[in-house]
């Protein structure tokens, strides 16, 4: 095990897969000479050359679609969005073409492609740069969606995504890029998609979260333990589609109380689906209504004071947890 950052973990995953499979290329804005807007691809141009690490113009629709066309032909492109917010100008290419070509061709054509980049608020960049589209990406059959929260998951799951024969949307988080964590060093370290992780065991309450919310949930669980003698279990979904329904349900059956936390907006957010799942399949195990904390339901605000109040923070999550106890 080595301790590296989330950013370095992504870099390792990309580098190892590019080395392993000559059909893998990385393309996007500023990924090569500039070393990546968030330096995820630092050193890769020098190592792999401009045929594999490809700078594109600011044309998300064209380079996303180009990558889909190349994937249809058997390549395995990794498309970096500087922000997932920018996918909106490439919507047709991702959610019509990548998602539907296999189905519409009766299974004749595969689209082994990865779309990746940060999808988060919390960085004072305003509404246009702070979207968290994991909910509507996961709403599209044909697409897989993952939200790794730790360096190890970032590496293991990105490697899985690149080897996957279906389109995978990898939603990262700029605030996590500097997060350090232990990551296995072996080349074949992978984490399968669709496997949630119980990152803290507990018995009184299940806090179910994904992405950066996992870290907020862990902090709240620590506070609950230290100040309230409440034992909270924290489940990191890791993957939105496929979804590890078994791990969710077995945690609920154990603790009988559920708090869902996400930085997604609430209406038709990921946790709306999780809440449905729990009431549908573990209703008799619930000792209290399912509670939920999401981003405040407004366009993402610029001002730090506003945005800090908007994104689920320690105090808001703690308050909601206390309502359940």
């Amino acid at each position: 095990m080595a301790t590296i950052t989330y950013r370095e973990a992504l870099n390792q995953a990309l580098s190892e897969e590019i080395e392993r499979d000559d059909k893998v290329v990385l393309m996007g804005e500023e990924v090569a000479q500039f070393k990546g807007s968030y330096k995820v691809s630092e050193g890769m141009l020098e190592k792999f050359g401009s045929d594999r690490i490809i700078d594109t113009p600011i044309s998300e629709a064209a380079f996303s679609g180009l990558a889909v066309g190349a994937a249809m032909m058997g390549m395995r492109p990794v498309v970096e969005f500087m922000f997932w917010s920018f996918c909106y100008v490439a919507f047709d290419q991702i959610f019509n073409n990548a998602a539907n070509v296999r189905y519409m061709s009766g299974g004749l054509i595969n689209v082994p492609i990865v779309f990746r980049g940060p999808a988060n608020g919390g960085t004072n960049v305003g509404a246009t740069h702070s979207h968290t589209p994991e909910n509507f990406a996961a709403n599209t059959p044909g697409i897989k969606v993952i939200c790794p929260a730790t360096p190890a998951d970032a590496k293991g799951m990105l490697k899985s995504a690149i080897r996957d024969n279906d389109p995978v949307c990898v939603m990262e988080n700029t605030i996590l890029y500097n997060l350090q964590g232990e990551v296995p060093e072996e080349n074949d370290f992978i984490i399968p998609l669709g496997k949630a992780n119980v990152v803290r065991e507990g018995s009184d309450l299940s806090i179910i979260a994904h992405g950066k919310s996992v870290h907020t949930a862990l902090e709240v669980a620590q506070t609950l333990d230290e100040t309230n003698k409440v034992s909270a279990e924290v489940v990191d979904l890791r993957s939105i589609r496929p979804l590890d329904t078994e791990t969710i349900l077995s945690s609920v059956r154990k603790t009988n109380r559920v708090l869902l936390v996400e930085e997604n907006k609430p209406f038709c957010g990921v946790d709306a689906q999780i809440a449905f799942l729990i009431q549908d399949q573990a209703f008799d195990y619930l000792d209290a209504p399912i509670k939920r904390v999401s981003a405040i339901d407004a366009p993402q605000a610029y001002s730090k004071s506003l945005e800090n109040a908007q994104i689920p923070n320690h105090d808001r999550v703690l308050r909601k947890a206390m309502e359940l106890i």
């Binding site: 045929d51 064209a62 679609g65 889909v68 066309g69 190349a70 032909m73 019509n96 073409n97 054509i109």
Partner: peptide, 25 residues
């Protein structure tokens, strides 16, 4: 033959990608 695409102009980047893959290979 790679389709058959329903959205007007939506196939124009795909065609580019097919050409790109040919050149890459």
């Amino acid at each position: 033959f790679w389709g058959g695409h329903g959205i007007v102009g939506g196939q124009t980047p795909l065609g580019l990608g097919i050409a790109y893959a040919l050149k890459f290979n």
